[in-house]
Design a protein around this nucleic acid. Structure first.
Lengths: 330, 330
DNA sequence: GCAGACTTGGAAACCGCTTTCCGGGAGGTC
DNA sequence: GACCTCCCGGAAAGCGGTTTCCAAGTCTGC
């Protein structure tokens, strides 16, 4: 590969001068030399070695994003928001996918630390297991001790800056809205019991029903994805309204209903959570709680880069969106 | 940050020994020293500086993937396939999104070159503009001249290893299948004229119709995304069957039909291309041409890493999948 | 015309790690 | 017991940049 030294030699200048011309510096270089250097660099096809720059400067221009699954539109939207924000700051992005394995997540933080990335964004739900959360916290603390910055989208469990969707409130509002339509018998496709996001949404929903004096919903646990929703929907009893704790599960539930000849919303109403853009053309249109996912991703990046000391936790409110997958009870 | 020197000092050994213990080497280190070093590293919370390793070793363990848009499930699936393959090789992934700007794509290749990534994967359709393709080729050539490896998913336009979906054949087969159902009047939502993937699919489709002695389809150009399909669908004339050159556009077209009270498939049949997994629950289920996207992404990574000299171009066949969005004409 | 303030180019130290090259000690062979 | 290997630890030379520190001009202003 072409090095700066090659360029300097070809241009007949010192390494220092070549560096100042090509790779940004506070110091000026005369027009004549500057032109010579630029021409030499171009002729040789020079590209600065960023590993060397990172080493010399002691600071890298890449950030790391850790998500569970890129093919899940929820994570894709969040990651996209963060990446757009990163691009405006001139930062590059390393993306890691854990496929929901917490060990992978810890390993990724270690790797990104080793890369000396400027910041790490952890996107996605934490599991409630204190042992694994503790190890993740330790790994993050190590990274931060060395000057690394971190932020998280999800629950405030890691002691870092956090963009936290208001899952409980959102689910509670949704419950009130659905109750307002006259529903009284609910089921919740609740996802995995140890997943905090899922548990919060479920709890918020059930709590609001309790406050309204309505009977507790039937709670059905299962995986947090489309197939989990599909499977859980089979177990729904006599509820008139089913709340899936995320949109992807709701879509699975709708598919299950369709296959079994259960009409939505005539026979049963279905609601989700997140308002995934890709699903906007789904039939029937999904009632859900809208989260500004792209903004949240971008916001998390800003928080991570922010120098301020105190850990900040930003609550992001969701907005109930009623669509045709639910009906008014008469 | 903790450096290897700190560890070596704390363990009372030389830098060389510490390096050999912690960061893999062909050479053995005695058990006693090895233990001392490991303990010191653990106490201090040492993480190797990968920038320094990359510099010293002259080889990095990251690969770059350039896609147009991560929130498009087509790219997400491809990227996910490549990332899984990368993970099995112990490689890290940098993802760049161009948002369909060819200049961005060139800039990303330059940046990844500067990062000295082990390989670059270019995912997504090329534009037909020879000027911009030429500049991208130049940039890639520069990178490869320095020992970089590259591969591409899409058209074989860059002179690098390529995984090429058989767009023409797939579209032709689809056309034959639809004609076999009795359709004779077709429209094609053809995407942008300069996008090679779109053009190939359109040409393959039209060509097959011609061979069957059917009239040429109405061709409507527009953006390559959901909204493009939505808008183009408004201009369809008296066709009984509409082919959108990708699934996302087809979904937009279906939405347009729905809004205008046009029933699918009763009033008009609609087909897409790609078989996006996220859309499997769409109603009506979309007739399409299935592409093994994850495999293609993984395959591209393997090709890129492959040392062999001759440029290889792998055709990937699509498989026509007839679903309820098309009907048999009687 | 000259002191002093700015500019600008270059030499060299340094960033954190890998790896070659040396050297000393242990173990094996005859 | 001498000689040869083999094994393993350490010193030091890079890897490709950045940046500090000097020194030599170049401009000012009076």
């Amino acid at each position: 590969m072409v090095t700066l030294e090659d360029v300097a030699k070809q241009a007949g200048v010192s390494l220092a001068t070549a560096s100042r011309v090509l790779n940004g510096s506070t110091r000026q270089v005369g027009a004549a030399l500057r032109a010579r250097v630029e021409q030499a660099a171009d002729e040789l096809g020079y590209r600065a070695n960023i590993a060397a720059q990172t080493l010399a400067r002691g600071a890298s221009n890449v950030i790391g994003i850790v998500v569970h699954d890129l093919t899940d539109p929820y994570f894709a939207a969040l990651a996209d928001g963060a990446m757009r924000a990163a691009a405006t700051e001139g930062l590059l992005v390393m993306v890691g996918t854990t496929h929901r394995d917490p060990e992978q997540e810890i390993a990724y933080v270690a790797t990104l630390h080793a890369q000396r990335v400027r910041a790490v964004l952890l996107v996605g739900s934490r599991v409630a297991d204190p042992a694994v959360t503790g190890r993740l916290r330790d790994e993050l603390a190590r990274y931060q001790a060395g000057g690394g910055r971190a932020a998280c989208v999800g629950q405030d469990l890691l002691g870092v800056d956090t963009v936290a969707p208001a899952n409980r409130q959102g689910a509670a509002e949704l419950a009130r809205a659905l109750a307002g339509l006259g529903h009284t018998k609910f089921a919740v496709l609740a996802g995995p019991p140890h997943l905090v996001t899922a548990a919060d949404r479920c709890a918020g929903f059930a709590g609001a029903l309790g406050e309204l004096g309505l009977p507790a919903p039937q709670v059905i646990h299962g995986p947090f994805d489309r197939d989990g929703g599909y499977a859980a929907a089979q177990q729904v009893g006599d509820a008139t309204c089913v709340f899936a704790v995320n949109d992807v599960m709701a879509v699975g539930a709708l598919a299950a209903c369709r296959e079994r000849g259960i009409r939505v919303p005539e026979d049963v109403s279905v609601a989700g959570f997140d308002d995934i853009v890709t699903l906007r053309d789904h039939v029937p249109a999904l009632t859900t709680v809208r989260l500004p996912l792209k903004d949240m991703g971008a916001r998390a990046l800003v928080l991570a880069l922010n120098e301020d000391d105190p850990v900040v936790v930003e609550q992001v409110a969701g907005e109930v969106v009623l669509r045709e997958s639910v009906r008014r009870m008469t």
